[in-house]
Write a protein that binds this DNA or RNA. Sequence first.
DNA 1: CCGTACTGCATGCACGGTCATTGAACCCTG
DNA 2: CAGGGTTCAATGACCGTGCATGCAGTACGG
Lengths: 141, 141
Amino acid sequence: MASKTAGGQLEDRWRDILSAHARTMCEIDRALHPHGLGASDFEVLDMLATAAPEEGRQCRVQNLVGRVHLSQSALSRLIARLEKDGLVTRSVCAEDRRGVWVSLTSRGRDLHAEVLPLQRAALSRTLGGEPPRPGSGRSPR
Amino acid sequence: MASKTAGGQLEDRWRDILSAHARTMCEIDRALHPHGLGASDFEVLDMLATAAPEEGRQCRVQNLVGRVHLSQSALSRLIARLEKDGLVTRSVCAEDRRGVWVSLTSRGRDLHAEVLPLQRAALSRTLGGEPPRPGSGRSPR
DNA sequence: CCGTACTGCATGCACGGTCATTGAACCCTG
DNA sequence: CAGGGTTCAATGACCGTGCATGCAGTACGG
């Protein structure tokens, strides 16, 4: 009955992704929540921290939308929250005044540096033990 | 320094999971939404359809909680929605009157059969091309 | 120069999710 | 059998997200 597995393999793969995603997401959230951040917040902070360090870590919102897994509206609100918490600043782009530059504050940079190892640790906790070979993945513990 | 890549590989893997999850989830939602279902709804419907066909496809809520990637409260509301739509029925468990049996109605079974191929199609659209070997996987398009 | 189409971000709204709490039923021990 | 501790499901309060829309700014065509 090898023919029947065609759809089943995809199902299995999807289940693996689903569970890995859920566990990791949850773990990151737990690790970062004490610092007032969620997984999405960190994702944006991380992009800002790693992008264009020579330009003052600035990034247009429009540039971020394509990179994070959020809708444009969600990103807008998220950035608003980060700004309210003093982690980023928004400033109008001079060349195209529709655009908005987002840049890390020093507090944002500090916080990112502070939680980066926590995120890494969460990742290795949930993904570290799993080999890239997903065949009927066994979860330890 | 091979040690530096240790964190980076996990990061990549996490990014892959994130994007596969987002794309697939979105695709499933799009495929199922015309039928009044979301991805989570289907997940529960599917569990009920495949579980214990001899017992009338019944399943305790408590049994489902561990299998789906939802909190207990979310599952409770989800089941309430499905019941309101006439896809499942809830009935108290006689042995343990705290428990609740959930079972598919015939309409629920029909709908599941109807959308199952759509979900499979969505899966193969977003996961089909990708090999199980994620080593610096290149995604077409 | 003005109007129209278009782009980039913000906002109103509805929905679905989690967390914390509640309430009923069960269990166990004195 | 009364009482405290535990488990199962439902509910309330709150939050984040997506979709559709609004509004300012830009580009283009007459």
